[in-house]
């Protein structure tokens, strides 16, 4: 059968969402940021809420997220995205407002803003892309860098005694009454992408109901920072990141659905 018989408009089953701009993504080859961007915009497109959605870009690799997502966006100072989103949401209570943040932004410099936006139960969505490293500045140790993991500022591996422990922000904020839906997903495999998309749909539903904050962590790779090929980095992520940052829902409809204590052991 000739390929051209298949490649016809009536047989189209998947194309890139129109809510991504034509700009080439600034991310490294194989970086999960791109997949996460596409998923969020696919959901915004499917819900038909482009005119009702305002995003907040962080400082980090995704600082230029506003170049790629075809919605009104505000670029926040490092770590302050949840406060910026709070300001927008309080003044536009009927719009969907989300932040898109990395681990350095959300779990180090912006810890206070993250925790307090969650605790106030702001009706916003936080997308948290965790790759355990500072990507944009060149692969320094992040708050979520694993024990023993090498980075440019932990060249001999993260030493817990002197550098502290990797922080599980998602489990932490799940315990705050202001969060309604808290989940951890990934985007490196098709099955994970489909689950993440469902999670993003759920997060926008929560935002619509104005019951509190929805928090979607996406564990991702940083092949440049980890110094691996994209495919190898995804295997390394499964073997090393997922045991410490296990995937799945942590809180649904305001109820914790996971044994947090056993996880902390």
């Amino acid at each position: 059968m000739d390929i051209n018989e298949i490649i016809k408009p009536e047989n189209l089953v998947f194309k890139r969402t129109e809510l991504m701009t034509d700009k080439t993504l600034s991310y490294c080859p194989g970086c999960g940021h791109g997949t996460a961007h596409h998923l969020i915009m696919e959901v915004v497109e499917e819900l038909g809420i482009q005119a009702d959605t305002i995003g907040v870009a962080p400082v980090g690799c995704s600082v230029l997220a506003y170049e790629f997502m075809d919605i009104d966006m505000t670029q926040a100072a490092h770590g302050r995205a949840p406060a910026v989103a709070t300001g927008i949401k309080r003044l536009w209570p009927d719009k969907y407002v989300f932040t898109y943040q990395g681990d350095g932004d959300l779990a180090a410099i912006g810890t206070a803003e993250t925790i307090h936006a969650c605790n106030r139960g702001e009706n916003i969505i936080i997308f948290f892309v965790n790759n355990g490293i500072y990507g944009m500045t060149g692969g320094q140790m992040a708050p979520t860098t694993l024990e023993g993991m090498r980075s440019s500022t932990s060249p001999y591996g993260r030493d817990l005694a002197s550098m502290g422990h990797p922080i599980k922000m998602t489990e932490l904020i799940a315990q705050l009454p202001g969060t309604v839906y808290v989940t951890r997903q990934a985007v490196h495999k098709a099955a994970n992408v489909r689950k993440t998309k469902k999670a993003i749909h759920k997060a926008f539903e929560v935002a619509k109901e104005k019951k509190g904050l929805a928090f979607v962590e996406i564990v991702s790779n940083c092949n440049s920072g980890w110094k691996m090929t994209p495919v190898d980095s995804n295997i390394w992520m499964e073997e090393n990141m997922f045991p410490f940052y296990p995937l799945g829902d942590i809180k649904v409809d305001g109820k914790i659905v996971k044994d947090l204590m056993s996880d902390l052991m």
Binding site: G87, I88, H116
Partner: peptide
């Protein structure tokens, strides 16, 4: 807000509207 830093960033987001 939880801090002056958060307050001014809320203003930043809100002023952008």
């Amino acid at each position: 807000a939880e801090s002056e830093i958060a307050a001014i960033n809320m203003v930043y987001g809100a002023a952008g509207t």
